[in-house]
């Protein structure tokens, strides 16, 4: 069975969190998942376009969907916020023919037309539903035995569940399933499904930092060796901002944070340089041993 997707890494993973994109490509290659480039795909708006104008957000996302439709593939993204924005745009365009007609009116000015057929997925969903956890287990050459991993879902993998419709936001399971398949032990803690604060990093910096620090301390308090997240934006806060959170909260945290693709890559025995591990600000050195 060959899995192929129109690959949408999102803006963050093309720049600040390049290691997420890099490791995803290597992991996909190792698993035999085809990622097809979407040259010229625009930004989904990360929620901010909705704040400017909801229909502008729908129009810009419809342009992305047109390309995937042309390619005859569903979209695979490695950013939770892109996932939530695209899923909500797609749901609205699919369920509201009048709205689709209005948005197609704008797309026509660019010579485009969207039929409304594209689905949007993220790595965990694809691994569980399409690739199969048993298949993933078979490819593990370096099981992460005795590693305690705190899953950090990120808001936009879970909520609104009406839009995303995969994990139960009260009791999600997909990240835990992936962690177990790699031989590691998922850690239960109350920050698991909460917010990292990324959306207010610039607007209310202190709030964002305290929120990030609270989640990190929560995971550390549950004896986690590291955190894993499917969202590059959560990764920016929890990894890049970790030293600021330590200072603000006057607490020692020192907890490595991995992208989901990095954690999988480690278990698949991929080279550290291929996974961009040196780009993580909090060194994941200790969990590699």
């Amino acid at each position: 069975m060959s899995l192929k997707y129109a690959y949408y890494p999102g803006c963050a993973s093309q720049e600040i969190t390049k290691e997420s994109d890099r490791s995803m490509r290597k992991v996909a290659a190792a698993l035999g998942i085809e990622l097809h480039e979407m040259p010229g795909a625009n930004c989904c708006g990360a929620g901010l376009l909705t704040d400017y104008d909801h229909d502008m957000m729908l129009s810009m996302n419809a342009r992305i969907f047109c390309q995937a439709e042309e390619m005859g593939m569903d979209i695979l993204t490695i950013c939770s916020t892109c996932l939530m924005v695209m899923c909500s745009a797609q749901q609205e365009l699919k369920n509201d023919p009048e709205k689709l007609k209005q948005i197609n009116g704008y797309l026509e000015k660019a010579g485009l037309h969207y039929k409304g057929t594209v689905e949007i997925k993220q790595l965990m969903w694809v691994l569980i539903d399409e690739y199969g956890m048993d298949e993933l287990k078979k490819r593990v050459v370096k099981p992460l035995t005795r590693l305690k991993v705190a899953p950090f879902y990120g808001c936009h993998s879970l909520r609104p569940s009406e839009v995303l419709g995969y994990d139960d936001p009260d009791k999600p399971h997909s990240l835990e399933a992936a962690i177990k398949a790699l031989g590691a032990e998922p850690v239960e803690y109350s920050g698991k499904t909460r917010c990292c604060g990324f959306q207010v990093d610039l607007v209310a910096h202190d709030v964002a930092v305290e929120m990030t620090g609270t989640r990190l301390l929560d995971a550390k308090g549950a004896s986690a060796d590291c955190i894993v997240t499917p969202c590059p934006l959560c990764h920016i806060n929890m990894d890049s901002y970790q030293s600021i959170a330590e200072k603000e909260l006057s607490k020692d945290i020192d907890l490595p944070v991995l992208h989901l693709s990095q954690l999988i890559g480690i278990a698949l025995g991929l080279k550290e340089s291929d996974l961009g591990l040196s780009r993580n600000l909090v060194s994941p050195e200790r969990i590699l041993r």
Partner: peptide, 12 residues
């Protein structure tokens, strides 16, 4: 309005 972190708990 700009202090919302867009976590989506309210809507959920």
């Amino acid at each position: 309005v700009w202090s919302c972190v867009r976590c989506g708990h309210c809507t959920e």
